[in-house]
Design a protein around this nucleic acid. Structure first.
Length: 591
RNA sequence: GCGCCCUUAGCUCAGUUGGAUAGAGCAACAGCCUUCUAAGCUGUUGGCCGCUGGUUCGAGUCCAGCAGGGCGCGCCA
């Protein structure tokens, strides 16, 4: 169900324009917009129609604007006037804004839903951290952005699946197996030193963090010393490797699932890289590309301008990514014959496509930016559609000082640390107060501050104030009168104060905000909208400090009180609706 | 060296996809409030939108070049 007064106004403008210019080209009509007025003096909304159509009409934009302004009033539009270089400013009947309040109360948090997605099956993949340890703050932004984006798209009518790609094949989880095996020998009381052990690990011992000691202990409990070699040394890999790897990966996945739950992220599906590989899907996908003539044996040029020290020309299995817009063709097999990560990733995206994803959106860290063109090329070759949202690095600050994050020094912050410190809702909100592709500073002190410059607090506080008023109203008028259904029926004619009208205008722009944010794949816009909405509400609240007659609850004026309660209830609904997109729980009161 | 992203008030950031006189918060300054609608309110100051050119009725927004910051750059995921 779509309801957006700006869309309705646009339809009215197009109709009026069509009466003036009957043969208006479609392409011109498509550029006509109706946007909220930036300034009070400009009315409630403005359209660029006259400027856009001027050329096709061979008329001066101002002249056309005057004709349009004369033709427009009617319906919601009380008044229209030409302005500036050819805008037409629209003033709505106040009743139209009040009707919007009533509508919010009738449909609840479904207000703002729309159908621009048209039910398109859409797979949003995010987090996808390697299952080699607990989540750290580096994963957090992608998790929040991906989750909010998925919620946003669902609200906008896309049929969304939230997916996590488990990289449980490849070198990283092999390294995890070795690290877990070390903790296992340690639990058994091996006499090997860590360095002696590390010397026997292909590629060196990684993942030395404490978090694997428990895994080592559990392996000992489960297997005794049967996985160890004589004298508690390293046994041949075929005796232990696969079992330890599988166990460690599953433990790490459990930890990640716990972290995700603590962050309030729940996936619909977890896709396993290993099971794709083992099912033969990777070879099948490569075979399919090969049949399409997109695979060949070839030698790549060295990267332009910077030849690595050990560069030597080598024949490789290459995918013709250049046919689909990439700069160079990309390798699918390593020199030892195994597949590259890219090859597996192609098969993974083919699998998503096979499962029905008409649109795939991957949320990645910015350090994978260079990988985007080849993945899009591969998906294009498979006949699919892939978009990638990149998230820039987050720098965590404590009181303005950077918190150093170094795995080696053991001072890296886990996601859990951050959640314990700041709280889930504040973390999620704060992560959405920047555009995803802009670098972000996350100030822990600010995120927990109870002041206006903390948007998370400011918005929650607005909601709590709404609820507080409604609780007080129940005392005064009884629960029946204050129910949303009852408030939807009250007369709203007394809502006419400039601050009340401003708040109503803001509420009415929620649907178009949702639609625009969804189209742009920019969930942070929801956070900014809520901040502005909260500001409008707090302003209205503060009016009551100066003038008791402007308070929400005025005992001897029941009609005005009920109308204001309707506005307050509608405000709370829209805040809740926005917070739901962000995955933040609204609070009933501040403590 | 090449590619991608970024550069907006002293600071942190928006900017409705090319529209009107570029906006918030913080900080600064000036007032107000001493309250229970707690965790302030109102106002003022502050701008070469990194720089230079281009596209057009119109550019913070699009294009080219330059400068600075970040990320990446054949068998790591």
């Amino acid at each position: 169900m779509t309801h957006d007064i700006f869309a309705e106004l646009r339809a009215a403008v197009l109709a009026a324009l069509g009466r003036i210019l009957p043969d208006l080209p479609e392409a011109v009509a498509a550029r006509v917009e109706v946007t909220p007025a930036r300034e009070e003096a400009h009315g409630d909304a403005a359209t660029n129609a006259a400027m856009v159509a001027a050329k096709a009409a061979r008329r001066n934009p101002r002249e056309l604007a005057a004709l349009l302004a004369a033709a427009l009033p009617g319906g919601m539009i009380a008044h229209a006037e030409p302005a500036g270089p050819g805008f037409v400013n629209l003033r709505l009947h106040e009743a139209a804004l009040r009707a919007e309040v009533k509508h919010v109360l009738e449909v609840g948090t479904g207000y703002g839903d729309c159908d621009i997605g048209g039910g398109l099956p859409t797979n949003v993949e995010y987090v996808s951290a390697n299952p080699t340890g607990p989540m750290h703050v580096g994963h957090c932004r992608g998790a929040v952005v991906g989750d909010a984006l998925a919620n946003l798209l669902a609200k906008a009518g896309f049929a969304v699946t939230k997916e996590y790609y488990v990289n449980d094949a490849g070198a990283q989880v092999d390294a995890l197996a070795w690290a877990a095996y070390w903790r296992y020998l340690e639990a058994l009381g091996t006499t090997l030193s860590e360095d002696e052990f590390a010397a026997r690990v292909p590629g060196g011992l990684q993942y030395r963090g404490e978090y694997l000691t428990a895994v080592g202990g559990t392996l000992k409990d489960r297997f005794g010393d049967t996985l160890a070699g004589p004298g508690l040394t390293v046994a041949p890999a075929e005796r232990w490797f696969a079992a330890v790897r599988m166990f460690a990966v599953s433990r790490m996945l459990d930890a990640i699932r716990d972290d995700l739950a603590a962050l309030g992220v729940r996936f619909d599906t977890f896709a396993s890289e290993r099971s794709l590989v083992e099912s033969g899907a990777v070879d099948a996908t490569i075979g399919r590309l090969e049949a399409d003539g997109l695979i060949y044996q070839g030698v790549l040029e060295p990267p332009r301008g910077r030849t690595p020290e050990d560069w030597e020309p080598r024949a490789q299995t290459l995918f013709r990514a250049t046919r689909f817009g990439d700069d160079v063709d990309r390798p699918l097999r390593k020199s030892d014959g195994s597949n590259t990560y890219f090859a597996n990733d192609i098969a993974y995206h083919a699998d998503k496509l096979r499962r029905g994803a008409a649109l795939m959106i991957d949320v990645w860290g910015a350090d994978h930016g260079g990988y985007v063109p080849r993945m899009q090329a591969a998906v294009a070759a498979l006949g699919g559609r892939l978009e990638v949202v990149l998230c820039q690095i987050v720098h965590v600050l404590q009181d303005g000082q950077p918190v150093r994050m170094s795995k080696r020094a053991g001072t890296f912050i886990t996601l859990r640390d951050l959640l314990d410190e700041v709280g889930r809702d504040a973390v999620r909100f704060t992560m959405l107060t920047r555009k995803a592709d802009a670098q972000m500073e996350f100030d822990i002190a600010l995120a927990v501050a109870q002041t206006r410059d903390n948007p998370a607090f400011y918005v929650q506080y607005a909601h709590a104030r709404c609820r507080s008023v409604l609780r007080a109203a129940v005392e005064m008028l009884g629960a029946g009168a204050v129910a949303e259904g009852a408030l939807a029926a009250v007369a709203l004619d007394t809502l006419a104060d400039p601050a009340e009208l401003a708040l109503m205008r803001r509420l009415a722009s929620w649907p178009r905000t949702v639609a625009a944010a969804a189209v742009a794949r920019e969930p942070h816009r929801i956070a900014f909208f809520l901040y502005d909405l909260a500001a409008d509400f707090h302003m209205l609240w503060n009016r009551g400090k100066d003038d008791a007659a402007l308070r929400f609850l005025v005992a001897d004026r029941p009609a005005e009180t009920l109308a204001r309660l309707a506005l307050v209830a509608a405000t709370a609904i829209v805040i809740r609706s926005g917070l739901a997109v962000m995955g933040v729980d609204p609070v009933e009161e501040m403590r």
